[in-house]
Design a protein around this nucleic acid. Structure first.
Lengths: 224, 224
DNA sequence: TCCGAACCGTAACGTACGGTACGCTGCATT
DNA sequence: AATGCAGCGTACCGTACGTTACGGTTCGGA
């Protein structure tokens, strides 16, 4: 499941996108909305959220403006909860690099195969079609792009240490993305049932890492 | 529910999985629906389809039963149009195998980056969430699974010829899938703008093929 | 020419839902 | 105690849309 860190402490970096910092009660409402999204997908209604959260619709509109505001707040609130542990960059040999990549891939597979991720991605995909608010952009920023921001330094450190070689960091990351995710995400979004036990995730993460390292051998590194 | 065309009472020749075989006029209606889906996504209405196709709503309901029936018919009709040329398996050397894979990958990238594919996949993802009809299953069958059915014989022929090696055909196909698609489909579904010129598609297809062959070298095949 | 089937255009119906208004309760402050 | 406010519950409104019904038109066949 997704890891909740309880409290998000914004360490500086007060960007234009200010942190709403919802209260306890508001977080409970958002959690109810999230559960309803997971259960009923896009069919969630304001009345259902109010009923589930034991609050009035008027409060929902006062707090979140309109339905889109509630959905956006829910997505951002969930994104703020997902804080994958930073990849360890202490020592840099091929074993530790491989371990970091494997850990990264396993965490990623765990997230994208979770009910919550599937539901929110479905929601964002729906709204990316013809809607004004860009939930798609938010999900993209906190999913695919956040992954890139977190992994690229690891890849570049590995390259600097001569463990792996590539020209374009972005391209290398996308190859790793493909090797890890393959068809899993699209199949899940389309409703295919995939079990994905922890053992399978670990095996798949190791396989993806092995393949990635094989495709980008560093100086002096032969094939496996 | 879906209504069979022409109300075949007992005139035999009615197979279980009969081809709907829409008439010319009905195909025009489906084309109009498809265009509207591409333009406005899930927000398409029966009135809009009737208006665009210059037909009455009553006719829509007579032909397709209900809104879901129209959507299902549209998706299936579009799927029947997409017929990628079968991969050439005449000669089997490493060059022809690579050419087949590259051609396959390029066609695939072209399809999944098309407006039509993005729109229909969005529609199917939306309906996979909480809906009764399984547009997701249809899209999956005609997309990801059809690709597998078409490519797997090529991979196995290459293995039989000793050009490539792998244990599990399904697993090998999924690796190829990942190397070709990477993050493209999910980014497009989430509304990210990707240009993907023909030159880029060709370059990416060649890169994916090269990487796939490198990961599954056949007996006697070294590295590139 | 007449008839019926298919179909177009549109009006109408029912419902679901987003959004708003209002009365009520509990609590904090003065 | 009085006051004000935040929030709950519910009724209500307007609209959009799926679905149905109906009158008018075209067209092929008897």
């Amino acid at each position: 499941m997704l890891v909740a860190v309880g409290e998000v402490s914004e360490l500086g970096a007060g960007d234009a996108a200010a942190e709403p910092a919802w209260s306890e009660r508001q977080s409970a409402v958002l959690e109810a909305a999230l559960r309803l999204i997971v259960e009923s997908g896009d069919a969630l209604t304001m009345s259902a959220v109010a009923r589930r959260a034991s609050c009035s619709k008027e409060t929902l509109y006062k707090w979140f403006g309109d339905r889109d505001g509630l959905l956006t707040a829910t997505v951002q609130w969930q994104a703020s909860k997902v804080q994958v542990a930073p990849v360890d960059r202490a020592r840099l040999d091929l074993a530790s690099l491989g371990a970091s990549l494997t850990q990264f891939a396993a965490g990623w597979l765990t997230v994208i195969s979770s009910d919550t991720s599937v539901a929110l991605n479905r929601l964002a995909v729906s709204h990316a079609g013809s809607h004004k608010t860009d939930l798609g952009r938010i999900v993209l920023d906190n999913g695919r792009l956040a992954m890139g921001r977190r992994l690229k330094p690891v890849l570049e450190a590995g390259r600097a240490a001569g463990l792996i070689a590539f020209d374009d960091t972005e391209a290398a990351f996308r190859v790793f993305f493909g090797l890890v995710a393959r068809d899993i995400q699209i199949r899940l979004l389309l409703g295919d049932r995939i079990d994905l036990s922890a053992a399978e995730i670990d095996r798949d993460a190791r396989a993806a890492t092995r393949q990635f390292l094989a495709l980008h051998p560093g100086a002096g590194q032969g094939r496996d």
